[in-house]
């Protein structure tokens, strides 16, 4: 049975390669978790053991009770949450316009939004700092929300547009003939049908805002308004030997990201192709 031998070796290769990918994807995260539950006295003696002989949650207790991380976490939730809500509102409107209207300047708007996805945002760091500081928007969560909202609107617009494109135009035409104004049809017919898309957009934007680092570093210098990435990074440079605590904090940063990943998993393809370039 030549063909079954072939298919067996093929299957073996297939699963072998997949196992490699799964291990490669998960190992770093596993290691993060492992160090975070390794007590300090075992960290050096059991350097590369795969699981500590005596796991403990001491680092988590410390991080939660005696560090600023709960504050950073709260700041990040506020910033990412508000950004996600604002972006989704704004992008729902503009995405709808892109999907349903033909208007003068549409091509320019699409071009503009595509360009904003391509150009180095890092070049805006200095001018935004200069513009924001007299307005009191540096060292403030509001400032970060404004910046993140603007940065994510183009991508979210394309994403929402792709969801609206999936809903037949006939539906709101039927509603308009039934006696609804366009905005009413949008509200009562189209939006309810786009709810999964709205949820996915919220998830994508939340994740993006949650991981933003450079503008948070530049615009916020006082600890009270630091987001999680900034807090973690300054913790790393200050206490660079408390590995257990750093990794416990790292695991905490991972939790919301993983939750939102579950939420948006079904829409990954749409999300990635909508931005085309968005990480």
């Amino acid at each position: 049975m030549k063909s079954s031998a072939y298919s067996r070796s093929y299957r073996f290769l297939h699963y072998g390669l997949l196992a490699f990918y799964v291990i490669f994807a998960l190992f770093p995260l596993y290691w993060l978790l492992k160090v975070s539950v390794t007590p300090n006295d075992l960290l050096y003696s059991e350097g590369i053991r795969l699981w500590p002989s005596r796991p403990s949650l001491a680092h988590y207790t410390f991080v939660l009770a005696h560090s600023d991380f709960p504050l950073f976490f709260k700041n990040s939730v506020i910033v990412s949450g508000s950004t996600a809500v604002l972006v989704t509102l704004v992008a729902a409107l503009s995405g709808y316009a892109m999907s349903r209207f033909d208007f003068r300047g549409k091509m320019w708007l699409v071009g503009l939004m595509l360009v904003t996805q391509m150009f180095p945002l890092v070049m805006l760091v200095a001018p935004i700092f200069k513009l924001f500081s007299p307005l009191g928007l540096t060292n403030s969560l509001t400032g970060l929300v404004i910046v993140y909202t603007a940065f994510n609107v183009p991508f979210a617009t394309f994403l929402m547009q792709s969801f609206f494109d999936g809903i037949p135009k006939d539906l709101e035409e039927a509603a308009m003939i039934d006696g609804a104004s366009r905005f009413r049809a949008f509200q009562q017919i189209i939006l309810p049908l786009t709810l999964p898309g709205v949820a996915a957009t919220l998830g994508f934007v939340f994740t993006a805002a949650w991981s933003e680092l450079l503008f948070a570093l530049m615009l916020v210098s006082k600890a009270g308004a630091s987001t999680f990435p900034v807090g973690l990074l300054s913790f790393v440079s200050k206490f660079s030997v408390d590995f257990g605590q750093m990794m416990a904090a790292g695991v905490l940063a991972l939790i919301p990201a993983c939750l939102f990943f579950l939420l948006i998993q079904r829409y990954l393809v749409q999300g990635l192709t909508a931005g085309a370039v968005k990480g």
Binding site: Y21, A25, W31, A253, L254, F261
Partner: peptide, 18 residues
């Protein structure tokens, strides 16, 4: 296998540095 994409970039960086 898609999970790494969800890991915030600063955390991927730190994780690999460690």
């Amino acid at each position: 296998v898609f999970l790494p994409w969800a890991v915030p970039t600063f955390l991927s960086g730190l994780n690999w540095a460690w």
